[in-house]
Computed example of a mutant assay.
Amino acid sequence: MFVIEARDPLAQKAFGIGLRGMAEIINLVSYYLVFIFIFIGFISLIRKYKTFKFEIEYILISVVSFFVALLTIVAPFISVGYSFERTFLQLLVILAPLFVIGCNSVILIFKKSRLKSVAPLLIMMLILTSQLMCNTELTYQIFGEPRSVIFNSKGFKYDIFYVHDKELVAAKWLNWSKENNLPICCDKHGGTRLKMLGISNIDDDIFKRNETKQGYIYLRYQNVVNGKIEPEYGRSEEIFVPISYYHHLFIRKSKIYDNEGSEIWV
Rank of each mutant, 00 (worst) to 15 (best):
L121T: 14
G81T: 03
E211R: 15
F54G: 05
L10V: 07
K50Y: 12
G16Y: 06
S177G: 00
I202C: 07
L92K: 01
F143W: 08
F37Q: 03
L219F: 03
F54T: 06
V34R: 01
A69D: 00
V163Y: 02
T51S: 15
L126F: 15
T136V: 12
I123F: 13
V266D: 14
T72Q: 07
M22H: 02
K166M: 11
L126R: 00
S244P: 00
L138T: 15
D187V: 06
I59A: 02
R209E: 12
K188P: 00
D8C: 05
G16M: 04
S236H: 08
E137C: 08
V241I: 15
Q131S: 11
F250V: 09
I36D: 02
I184Y: 05
C134K: 05
C103T: 15
M125Q: 09
A75V: 11
P97F: 06
I256P: 08
D187K: 04
F77K: 02
K228W: 11
I17M: 04
S177P: 00
V169Y: 01
T87E: 04
V224I: 13
R147I: 13
L70M: 03
E55L: 06
Y49V: 04
E260C: 10
K154P: 00
A11G: 12
A69S: 00
K253T: 09
I199Q: 01
I160N: 03
T129F: 13
S262K: 08
K157P: 00
N180L: 14
Y257K: 10
K213D: 03
H189R: 10
P76Y: 07
I142K: 02
K48L: 09
I36Q: 02
G102H: 12
V225G: 02
S44C: 03
I38K: 09
E232C: 05
I107A: 05
F2K: 06
Q222I: 14
F67I: 06
N201M: 11
G261V: 01
F67P: 00
I206T: 15
P120K: 06
Y246E: 10
V3N: 14
M124G: 13
M125C: 13
Y140H: 14
V80I: 05
K178C: 04
D159G: 07
T139I: 13
L182K: 13
E55A: 09
L138E: 01
S262V: 04
L19P: 10
S254V: 14
Q141G: 02
Q12K: 13
F39Y: 10
K157S: 10
E260V: 08
E260M: 10
G191W: 03
R220T: 13
N104D: 11
F84P: 00
Q214P: 00
I251H: 09
H189V: 06
A119F: 15
S30V: 15
